[in-house]
């Protein structure tokens, strides 16, 4: 049986309604997707069915997970955060500047930590051999960037507006344009991999990956804001996207710094 967008739309609506019902019955807001989210078919066999085992970090300052791997100037190069300068020629597409702050749940900046990004090119094609979409590769664009946050928690990338692309979750499935982000906090518990979207993309309601975040306000936090003050004259359009890391961290260590 062919799985259509209409089928997926109905599943997305049912998951959303189930979440609204849980909320109405007093359940807590869900800031993250459930790992068991069937509209995204790849999740079906790849999520645990046993409940996770809770660990209260406040009871044990010695937990390995309360510290984080360190990264430094040796781990990046000077042009890692400019994805338009990594080859001999200019990549095709609309240049953009993406910047924001890396914060913890208390709103404090996470300083000197690693931010990694990857994305499709302007035609919606990843530089990856398993990619099956036949849009053109760009010999001047790998779509990979890396930087360290500064003293105020800011990161900044220059890149190319990624294109939307088809995938095979169902017939006529399309991913809205996005940039993948991987970030570290001051504790390994705060590790986050996610995706940043662009404002007003008409593909949002059709995408089971974005819609796996069933809370409307949480989903909005994945969408960058156009920021004219970040646009560079004669060069690029600017987008602002702050990232807030979840997960407990060792405040008693930081206070001693």
């Amino acid at each position: 049986m062919t799985l259509t967008q209409h089928d997926i739309d109905q599943e997305i609506a049912a998951e959303h309604a189930a979440y609204e019902k849980r909320l109405a019955e007093g359940a807590p807001v869900e800031h993250h997707p459930r790992r068991d989210y069937a509209p995204y078919r790849s999740s079906v066999l790849r999520h645990p069915k046993q409940p996770l085992v809770a660990i209260d970090v406040s009871k044990d300052p010695e937990l390995v997970e309360l510290s984080s791997p360190a990264f430094g100037e040796r781990d990046i190069t000077g042009i890692d955060n400019d994805l338009t300068r990594q080859h001999t020629g200019e990549p095709v597409g609309e240049r953009i500047t993406v910047s924001g702050r890396l914060l913890d749940r208390d709103g404090r900046p996470v300083r000197g930590q690693l931010v990694e990004i990857w994305q499709a090119n302007s035609a919606g094609r990843y530089a990856h051999q398993r990619e099956q979409h036949d849009a053109p590769l760009d010999p001047n664009f790998s779509g990979v960037g890396r930087t360290l946050t500064d003293a105020d928690g800011f990161y900044r990338f220059t890149t190319i507006q990624p294109g939307p692309y088809p995938w095979r979750n169902h017939v006529n499935a399309w991913r809205p344009a996005h940039i993948h982000f991987s970030v570290f906090g001051s504790a390994f518990t705060q590790r986050l991999v996610t995706q940043m979207y662009f404002p007003n993309d008409p593909l949002f309601p059709y995408d089971p990956i974005l819609q796996s975040v069933t809370d409307d306000a949480a989903r909005q936090r994945l969408v960058a804001t156009y920021d004219h003050s970040l646009s560079v004259p004669e060069f690029s359009l600017g987008y602002h996207w702050d990232i807030v890391l979840d997960g407990p961290h060792a405040t008693w260590i930081e206070e001693g710094r």
């Binding site: 749940r105 990857w118 790998s142 991987s182 809370d215 949480a218 989903r219």
Partner: peptide, 14 residues
Amino acid sequence: PTPSHTVGPFYGYA
């Protein structure tokens, strides 16, 4: 917090 998303299949170069 910023919600989590899958790493997807195409992180290989990154």
